[in-house]
Design a protein around this nucleic acid. Structure first.
Lengths: 336, 336
DNA sequence: CTGTTAGCGCATTCAA
DNA sequence: TTGAATGCGCTAACAG
């Protein structure tokens, strides 16, 4: 339909003033129940919808929240960690009447959303955001980081160190002494934290990190195979592999299988993330569960609190991780 | 920064009128090059950004496009087909200055984006949208469907029938005579089309569809295993499986492997989608490539054309699919 | 409780 | 070419 009905139309039709209609519909301000109901009924019949732009211009709030994913975490494909979080954020915000303005962070296009006042707040997923940019944006709007932190900036993360420690301890306590660590890159803060958990676990059991057992595949689509080539091409084969994420774990299983080795009999494998991949492969992956839905919801709630003028306590919210034991670690069928 | 600079500030500073500033900055209307440059320089120095709401209210265009994914295609996890398309849409729209308002279609929340005039146009991903809703929304704003069609509604799809036909012919022409079809559900139009391609191929080679060789796992997270349980529990084992998507193909490989069967030696497997999953598993999956990035880009471009007042020709854009041969079909190592 | 008035920030007539 | 006036549709402060 071309012309939309406005509060003026309703006002004229009922012989009241536009501001009365505004009060009746927005619920703000005093108004007699009788006229309110009368107005609401007519608005309903006419299919009235407030113009979001006009309302936003007057109230200085748009009802939209920017959600940003850095391009390094793209593509949003079968390997993506953030799709689920994005979805959880959208679901939670929608409940409270907010819309999601989705953006990737490759270009300078995205800060403009804030400068042009398109959004009331911002949620940024992933690392690789410059601290300067975050702090300058935070001056304009409430902002929450997910899976990343900067001092004093509200954020939601998962316990990467703790989860990695648990996973590694699980392998160690089932008799493994030669546990390799495989990641795309240690330059990523999350993977770095997972390495730290691995290191801590070894240390607790009186072991040290062996250089040849820590391999990186680099930031590339075949990172898993590059890393495994290094590991399999090296001198000694580990009895177990702890991968920094499920993608690398699945790649490890594939490489081992291709090399004629059996998982978990010859080499045990444990991953990290517990996404859909984990149950798609054979053998089903033992992995550390990262509460992605909870992270998204927590981030949305934290931002909502900020938008309401409240505080974000705690500033940094650390969600727990836990080990999901399946069969790739070998402890179920046979412990060593 | 609390208070933002407006065109009034710039006008006052330069002793010109706000409307002159508006002309200089928006590029619309006549203005002398000298004053334009002067104004632009000052605007630049002051870090001026137009208020998107005010501009939108005046021009009746928001610069935002709604992108909707139906909840049935969620979660946006490792199994998701649409994340990549969403991303491609965002990238293409960003180039042309448009932002993406992301929404899922579960509730009635999403049509409000249109009614409240938050978006200039709409892109809807996936099936399971009621034709009534689509048509009523299309009265308000330009609209493009992706992976789905309704008569007369602009849309972008891929050649599901052709791809499925190719995949099935590939198996048949390598000697297979007992080819099963495995899908989540034939209620889905895309899967239905893929089944149609399968049927056509069989027919071309003088074969008929055998009931026991067509299995559905249902809409559930373990759909792959349910379907494979039916197939493996049935009387006769096929020599090849054509799965309606990579998820089911990977599930088939897993189930076959678990049952002690070798892929492709005992049973060949071909999938559909050619997403990241295809190369993550062992053996690497032969599958039909669906040009998801191209689909997203095409949808964005089609909508942009509509927003510019042009036409969408063709109304239905069918992007080609192609068979990506890897090793799960068995034709590389050994043809029968 | 309700109507009047005055913006929100920008674009776009129409005069000058 | 530029300025003044008006409107986009809604909210909010102030009277009545």
């Amino acid at each position: 339909m071309g012309m939309r009905v406005t509060i003026h139309d309703i006002a004229r039709l009922l012989g009241v003033s536009p501001s009365t209609v505004s009060r009746a519909l927005s619920g703000k301000g005093r108004i007699s129940p009788a006229t309110r109901e009368k107005i609401r009924r007519v608005a309903e019949e006419l299919g009235y919808r407030p113009n979001a732009l006009a309302r936003g211009l007057a109230t200085r709030r748009t009802g939209e929240v920017g959600v940003v994913i850095h391009e390094r975490h793209l593509p949003l494909d079968e390997r993506s960690f953030y799709g689920v979080i994005l979805e959880a954020i959208e679901a939670e915000l929608a409940v409270h009447g907010y819309h999601v303005l989705f953006s990737t962070m490759g270009d300078q296009f995205f800060p403009r959303c804030v400068e042009e006042r398109r959004v009331d707040g911002l949620i940024i997923l992933g690392t690789d955001v410059s601290e300067d940019l975050v702090r300058s944006l935070a001056e304009f709007v409430p902002l929450v980081l997910v899976d990343h932190t900067f001092p004093g900036i509200p954020s939601v993360v998962s316990d990467n160190v703790g989860g990695a420690r648990l996973a590694t301890l699980h392998l160690l306590d089932h008799g493994h002494r030669e546990v390799a660590f495989v990641a795309e890159t240690l330059a990523d803060p999350s993977f770095r934290a997972r390495f730290e958990g691995y290191r801590l676990a070894l240390r607790e059991r009186g072991l040290r990190v062996r250089r040849g057992f820590v391999v990186e595949g680099g930031r590339r689509s075949d990172s898993d195979q590059v890393a495994m080539a290094k590991l399999l091409g090296g001198g000694r084969l580990p009895t177990a592999i702890f991968a920094a994420n499920d993608f690398m774990a699945v790649g490890a299983i594939k490489a081992l299988t291709t090399a004629g080795l059996k998982v978990p009999q010859d080499v045990a494998v444990v991953g990290f993330d517990d996404g859909a991949l984990a149950t798609l492969v054979h053998p089903p992956l033992t992995t550390v569960r990262v509460p992605r839905v909870e992270m998204g919801r927590a981030a949305a709630r934290k931002l909502l609190a900020l938008l309401r003028g409240g505080n974000a306590h705690p500033v940094v919210e650390i969600l727990p991780t836990a080990l999901t034991v399946r069969t790739s670690c070998g402890c179920i069928s046979s412990s060593r």
